[in-house]
């Protein structure tokens, strides 16, 4: 079996006094699309932020390509080849679309060129001069994904990219994820939309109360419907 690109072991994280993650264990291998699924407040976003170093108060182990990052500041973690597309999208209102797109510095070779990004998301070229936050929700989501494709990061963490978007846009984002996997990106996806998750992912980790409580291979999804419905409370 290949070495995992990301290996999280015994990860604990705190916001101030509140203990949110209680020893998360999971891994993502190169080229995989893996999801974290679970109810609201389960700790999925916190997991991504803790991996990234955006939640500073954390213990345990986060190995990125074999390097221990749990004590590193976010900017050093990022330079190991990981990038995040945050839940609230994080588009900068004082930057136009092009500035938003080109803001993240290139940290490694092998990222997409601007032209390649534009061919995936033509709208971003058309709207280049608009203020970033003037884009529609779907367009902002594309911008948030697009801007981490240029940087050379190999592991992308997408936090609920389909949240609140119309079905056509969701479908488009699904296609984009398929395209990204063809281009050798590895993706850690947070999703609540289970149908969507099963259409793009290889494996799913179920998160509850800051723990990974189950792992389900995408092929085994149908046998596990009932269990999943229970986990997600849908």
């Amino acid at each position: 079996m290949t070495e995992p690109l990301l290996k999280v072991a015994g990860l604990n994280a705190w916001y101030g006094e509140s203990h949110i993650l209680h020893g998360m264990d999971f891994e993502v291998r190169p080229g995989e699309v893996v999801t974290l699924i679970g109810r609201n407040g389960a700790g999925k976003t916190t997991t991504l932020r803790a991996i990234m170093g955006m939640v500073k108060n954390r213990t345990g182990s986060v190995l990125l390509g074999g390097t221990e990052t749990v004590k590193m500041p976010a900017e050093r973690v990022a330079r190991l080849g990981i990038a995040i597309c945050p839940e609230e999208r994080g588009i900068f209102s004082s930057l136009n679309v092009t500035e938003n797109l080109t803001l993240p510095p290139v940290i490694a070779e092998g990222g997409m060129s601007l032209e390649e990004v534009y061919s995936l998301f033509p709208i971003l070229k058309e709207r280049g001069k608009s203020q970033g936050t003037k884009l529609s929700g779907g367009e902002q989501q594309m911008l948030a994904i697009a801007r981490i494709l240029r940087t050379g990061a190999k592991l992308l963490m997408l936090d609920e990219p389909t949240e609140g978007l119309a079905p056509v846009i969701v479908e488009q984002i699904g296609k984009t994820i398929q395209e990204l996997r063809k281009r050798d990106f590895t993706i850690l996806l947070v999703e609540q939309n289970f149908r969507f998750a099963s259409s793009v992912a290889d494996r799913h980790y179920v998160v509850e109360h800051g723990n990974v409580i189950d792992e389900i291979a995408n092929e085994a999804i149908d046998q596990n419907r009932e269990k999943l419905t229970q986990y997600l409370g849908v």
């Binding site: 170093g53 955006m54 976010a74 900017e75 990038a83 945050p86 994080g90 940290i107 940087t151």
Partner: peptide, 8 residues
């Protein structure tokens, strides 16, 4: 925080 997470 987000700008930091981009490696800046």
């Amino acid at each position: 925080d987000l700008v930091r997470a981009f490696g800046v």
